[in-house]
Each structure stands twice: as structure tokens, then as C-alpha cells.
């Protein structure tokens, strides 16, 4: 790391950002804390409830299962998207007309509004009018995502792969492009195998971007709301009700502000811990690589 200049006046440059984000983040967070210890029947009338909501929540079956579903979902999509993303990035062309074609088409799903992504897959998966549902049924596979929990999970997972694998691909591709050609030439002279090149040249260079990809994908999948809400509405039953969906159901659907606020806080604490762990790991890896004189 280059030694940065000490300058306390730099705070003034950061101040506008700080104030604007604090306005949108700190005031709502304080409000959530206030709600979480009170009960309300509307009209801004609140009654002290202590930690009852938290106590109920940590013992509630509904919260446990939503939490487990959330972990399972994040786990599945990470296990598929990261290796798939690396594979695709490795086989992408480095020059020629293929590069812009790949980049533009792959970035396309990332720029579709999330509920439209939901709508696309809602239509695509329907057995009567959707290509996917129709074809699967024609092949004799029993597939109906509005009734079968397994089919609903399949649809949501494949939708997420469709939507977000490109992010991993683009990140890895950026990492691969930063490897100088000289490295590959040296490897060829040494007679290194394809696997050795991947293990000792490409993977180390991708480490940093892979961490970013992992972090972003984990966080975004952990707070997924719109897409499964549009496709399945959390159903059939509660089988695809993830944390955010459950939270919105509780807060908006049932207007249980107290329990919803308590749930928000626990949700936020989980995110905060994971975020801190990832951030620490990431910055330490960055420091190691500079200490060793690399990159």
C-alpha cells in the first residue's frame, strides 16, 4: 500500500455522501429499533413490549424455516454460479468480434428490472403458454411450479442462474484479461499443462475478483425479494418464502410492525456479521498480495 497523506480536511469531501446516506440509513434504522420493542394498533399509538418480539422470533418455527430456506437457496446458487461463471469466463474469446457480442449479451439480464425478470420466468415456465413448461410437459416430466414445491424451487434457482451468472463471468473475465501474455508464453516454454496454468496463473489472478463476485452474489441472494415474489409469491404453501418475502408479508401484509421490526434487526445483524467477515478477509488478501510485491 502507498502511504496516504494524513489530512483531516478530507472529511469535508466525504461529508455530503455521509449526510445523504445517513439520512436514508440511520433514521430508518433508529425507527426500526424503536418499533421492535413496542406494539401498535395503528394511529401512531405505541405500547411498550420489551424484548417479547425478539424472544418470540428466536423461538418461532416460521422464522427458523425461512432462515434455513434462505441459507439453502444462497448455498445452491453459489455452488452453481461460481464454478459455472469461471468455466464460461475461461472459454470466452479474448479478441475479435466475439468479445463485444459476449459482453453485451451477457450483461443484458443484469439490466432487466427484477420484477420483469420474474415476469419473464413466470411466463416462460407456465405449462400452457411458456416454452420451458410446455417442453418439459411434452417430454413427460411432471412440472408445475404453482403446485409442486420442487418445481417452484427449480424455477427460482434456474431463474437466479439466468439472471446473475453473468456477473460472475464478467468479473472473472476482467481478472483474466489483466494477465499479461508473457505469463502464458513462459508457461508454454515450461510445458505446463492446462490444469497447471489454471491453478498457478489464472486462479491466483482471479482470487480478488472472485471474492468480490462471491461477496456480491451472497449478499444479493440473501436479500432476494422481487423475483421469487413475482414468480411464486412465496408459494406453493411457504416453500419459497425467503427472509425478505416473509418480512414484507409480516410488515405490509399483516401490519405487525413490532415483530417485523424485530425480524429486520436480526436479519440486519446477520448481514452485518457476514459483511464484516468478508470485508476483513478481502482487505487482508489485498494487503498480503501487496506485501509479497505482487500486482
Amino acid at each position: 500500500m502507498i502511504a496516504k497523506q494524513q489530512n483531516q480536511k478530507a472529511w469535508f469531501m466525504v461529508l455530503p455522501v455521509f449526510l445523504l446516506v445517513a439520512f436514508s440509513a440511520v433514521i430508518p434504522l433508529m425507527t426500526v429499533v424503536n418499533y421492535s420493542v413496542q406494539d401498535t394498533f395503528g394511529n401512531n399509538q405505541f405500547f411498550w413490549a420489551g424484548v417479547d418480539w425478539f424472544r418470540n422470533l428466536v423461538h418461532s418455527e416460521r422464522f427458523h424455516s425461512a432462515f434455513l430456506r434462505q441459507l439453502l437457496f444462497s448455498g445452491i446458487i453459489l455452488a452453481i454460479e461460481i464454478p459455472l461463471g469461471i468455466l464460461i469466463a475461461l472459454s470466452m474469446p479474448r479478441r475479435g468480434w466475439g468479445v463485444p457480442v459476449c459482453l453485451i449479451t451477457m450483461a443484458l439480464p443484469l439490466l432487466i428490472p427484477w420484477n420483469v425478470v420474474g415476469t419473464i420466468w413466470q411466463i416462460f415456465g407456465r405449462v400452457d403458454i411458456g416454452l420451458l413448461g410446455y417442453s418439459l410437459t411434452a417430454l413427460g416430466i411432471d412440472y408445475n411450479y404453482t403446485q409442486d414445491p420442487l418445481a417452484a424451487w427449480f424455477t427460482v434457482v434456474i431463474m437466479d442462474i439466468w439472471h446473475w451468472t453473468s456477473l460472475v463471468v464478467l468479473l472473472c473475465y476482467a481478472g483474466l484479461c489483466s494477465i499479461p501474455d508473457a505469463y502464458y508464453q513462459a508457461a508454454r516454454i515450461d510445458g505446463a499443462s492446462r490444469l497447471a496454468i489454471f491453478r498457478y496463473i489464472q486462479l491466483p489472478k482471479m482470487q480478488r475478483v472472485l471474492l468480490i463476485a462471491f461477496l456480491l452474489r451472497f449478499m444479493d441472494s440473501f436479500m432476494i425479494y422481487t423475483e421469487p415474489f413475482v414468480i411464486t409469491g412465496g408459494g406453493p404453501g411457504n416453500s419459497t418464502t425467503f427472509l425478505s418475502i416473509d418480512l414484507v408479508k409480516l410488515a405490509v401484509g399483516q401490519f405487525d410492525l413490532g415483530p417485523a421490526a424485530a425480524m429486520s434487526l436480526i436479519y440486519f445483524l446477520v448481514i452485518l456479521l457476514l459483511c464484516y467477515v468478508f470485508y476483513t478477509v478481502m482487505s487482508n488478501i489485498g494487503m498480503e498480495s501487496t506485501n509479497h510485491g505482487g500486482s
Binding site: 436514508s24 433514521i27 430508518p28 440473501f222 436479500m223 425478505s244 436479519y267 440486519f268 448481514i271 459483511c275
Partner: peptide, 13 residues
């Protein structure tokens, strides 16, 4: 952390 926080948490207030 604000980039990572779920909007559902903030939507309420």
C-alpha cells in the same frame, strides 16, 4: 453495509 442491507429492512419506515 448500506449497499448490502436488504431494502426490505428499510422499506418499513
Amino acid at each position: 453495509t448500506n449497499r448490502m442491507a436488504p431494502p426490505a429492512v428499510f422499506a418499513l419506515p
